[in-house]
Nucleic acid binder design. Structure first.
Length: 591
RNA sequence: GCUGCUGUAGCUCAGUGGUAGAGCACUUCCUUGGUAAGGAAGAGGUCACGGGUUCAAGUCCCGUCAGCAGCUCCA
């Protein structure tokens, strides 16, 4: 922490991003002192702090961060004044070349003609930088260097890799402490940690990287979500279809996947002398069903849904627990409709997205992703129509759209949803895409009322995205404390003495008959230990049965997260808990 | 894929080139306990895998696999 002499000023006159950028400079100057000859990349402020990229001959290790922090404090005291100077382009270039700063020279070259070229300095450190910065480094602020990582120069994997140091800074000490506590909470809720601790899923070296094995406790969660999902889809006129995981390579040739997506696909396998492929997407299969016979305008729209498992080759360094894997199940659906139906279909999909996301307690933002600058197919007219249909559908569904300029796919515009979880982090799962490409490639038609063949539009949509990513996110969102309807075990029954084990078993039978998931802890162990275990596993309700309860047909209930006890009759409890389950409430209140 | 780091019991982790360890979990026995871990004993190891250096490798070197942080990319 900076031990500056000045007392904290009310409302320090600089925004956090300015402070952080200045602390990045301070860090770079410390690195310069400790590692002469270092070359500098960029060092901006970012969402939760700052970073700076360095080209150093030796790799840094964690403990170097402490040294650098110490040097930073020394510099902040010794040469606190930050100064800005403007130079002509040639002078600037010379200054950088004198210091051997090749990356900075490249940075200079990308500054447009006519823009001011400024250097910021303190002590014998100076940096090509447009600022702004705080005035002096001995103001009262608090910082911490956090981690090391490699980062490509200008984010380009064909360029050299630099060493990046991440850090953060705040004006108030309490803010830094709170931020570090938040990071700790993020770590505690990490789905990989909870996955092991709560016996939810695993991956296996022998099975290969990026393949998730769902354990029984998480299988239950998935089944509940699937049932919920199918229920909503059936109500809205979706029909289930099932398609194979493997097919002849020609199918993916026609769809364009080999050409446009080949690098993401698993290599061909030879069957009866012919190449076959594992599917990376479900669309080609759905199209084959559409094409199987002639289609009339009278049967459109067709809404076909499949929980389709696909396999994609993701580069090894991108794999991450359940969130980024090589085999996953999409909650996929393709809607085949006429151009006139498009807006209404979009509205229907958006309503369903909102219904599902809010059921899990997510806040969301919707983005309209428009036509990319290059490499797109289809006429302006058809793009305009599709954009209009997406906007129109959103208006009908009462959803506001932000614009993601040029973020569409090559084959059409889309609406993406970002959700905000309980820790304020954003995830992207849901996507609704207009597709003009595949109907064209497969020459899809329907016979219109005038007897002429017309081209249908396909809407491709996934709401959860994939079960792996969605459920991995849910684990973190809930911190392993699933709401009652999803909880792997909903009720733990614990006898106080072995004499009450029979009563527990009878209770368990009755609760299970109502479809509840009950853990009957009737083994001859100690009650306190069983309470500890049930608590560890985040079971929503513990029902403790002693002599009194067994006699009265009651149980002493304890709700997850509390230590209070409430005695309820079994029938009363069963009725309340069934209501709670059917409501899919996110709260644990019994009514 | 790239840069850096890591891999020892189911889990969390000790281990100085010279006999492989602890806590929790597991099994058995004892314990009958009113709301966050009762006690004892036992079992459990290809030190990720393959090669090399050495009289001797968990330990040093190389390769492979897997994981972690980030970059790039994505549901």
């Amino acid at each position: 922490m900076n031990e500056a002499s000045s007392a904290p000023q009310v409302g320090e006159p600089y925004p956090l991003s300015t402070l952080r950028h200045s602390v990045a400079h301070l860090m770079a100057s410390a690195v310069q002192n400790l590692y002469p000859g270092v070359k500098f990349g960029f060092g901006p402020a970012i969402e939760h702090g700052f970073y700076y990229d360095f080209d150093l001959p030796e790799p840094l290790v964690e403990k170097d961060l402490k040294r650098i922090e110490k040097e930073m404090r020394r510099i902040a005291k010794k040469t606190p004044e930050l100064q800005c100077a403007e130079y002509g382009r040639e002078t600037a270039r010379t200054r950088l070349l004198e210091r051997n700063q090749d990356f900075k020279v490249e940075g200079l070259e990308s500054i447009p003609q006519g823009e001011a070229i400024t250097f910021w300095s303190h002590g014998d450190w100076e940096d090509l930088c447009e600022g702004p910065h705080i005035d002096r480094l001995n103001r009262n602020f608090h910082f911490k260097l956090q981690s090391l990582a490699g980062a490509y120069w200008r984010g380009d994997e064909s360029r050299p890799m630099l060493q990046r140091i991440y850090g953060t800074a705040f004006w108030e000490k309490e803010e830094l402490t709170a931020h570090l506590a938040w990071l700790e909470e993020v770590k505690q809720r990490d789905h990989r940690r909870l996955g092991a601790e709560l016996d939810l899923f695993s991956t296996h070296e022998v099975a290969g990287a990026g393949f998730v094995f769902w354990h029984p406790r998480l299988g239950v969660v998935r089944r509940e979500i699937e049932d919920f999902w199918w229920g909503l889809h059936t109500e809205r006129g979706y029909e289930p279809i099932y398609t194979p995981h493997v097919g002849r390579e020609d199918l993916f040739g026609i769809s364009g996947h080999i050409e446009n997506y080949g690098e993401m696909m698993y290599a061909p396998m030879e069957i009866d002398g012919m190449p076959y492929r594992v599917k990376p997407m479900n669309c080609p299969g759905h199209i084959l069903i559409y094409q199987n016979r002639g289609r009339s305008y009278r049967e459109l729209p067709l809404r076909w849904a499949e929980l389709g498992t696909v396999y994609r080759y993701e580069r090894s360094g991108t794999l991450h627990g359940m969130l980024r894997v090589r085999g996953f199940t999409q909650d996929d659906s393709h809607i085949f409709c006429t151009p006139e139906q498009l807006a209404g279909e979009i509205a229907g999909v958006l309503e369903l997205v909102v219904t599902i996301l809010t059921a899990f307690g997510y806040e969301y933002t919707a983005y309209l992703a428009t036509r990319p600058d290059e490499h797109t197919i289809g006429s302006d007219e058809i793009w305009d129509k599709a954009m209009a249909a997406l906007s129109d559908g959103a208006r009908q569904a009462g959803i506001e759209l932000e614009v993601d300029e040029g973020g569409g796919t090559f084959y059409g515009p889309k609406i993406d949803f970002k959700v905000k979880d309980a820790l304020g982090r954003e995830w992207q799962n849901s996507t609704v895409q207009c597709d003009f490409n595949l109907p064209e490639r497969f020459d899809l038609t329907y016979t219109d009322s005038d007897g002429k063949p017309k081209r249908p539009i396909m809407v491709h949509r996934a709401i959860l995205g994939s079960f792996e990513r969605f459920v991995g996110g849910l684990i973190e969102h809930f911190g392993g404390r699933f709401p009652f309807w999803l909880a792997p075990e909903q009720i733990a029954l614990i006898p106080i003495r072995e004499e009450q084990a029979d009563t527990c078993r009878a209770y368990a039978q009755e609760l299970r008959a109502a479809g509840l998931r009950v853990r009957c802890m009737d083994d001859p162990g100690h009650m306190n230990k069983k309470i500890k275990l049930a608590q560890h596993d985040q079971v929503p309700f513990m029902g403790i049965v002693g002599e009194r309860e067994a006699q009265d047909g009651t149980l002493a209930l304890r709700r997850r997260g509390t230590r209070e006890q409430e005695v309820l009759g079994l029938a009363e409890f069963l009725a309340a808990v069934t209501r709670l389950r059917d409501s899919r409430s996110l709260e644990l209140e019994l009514q």
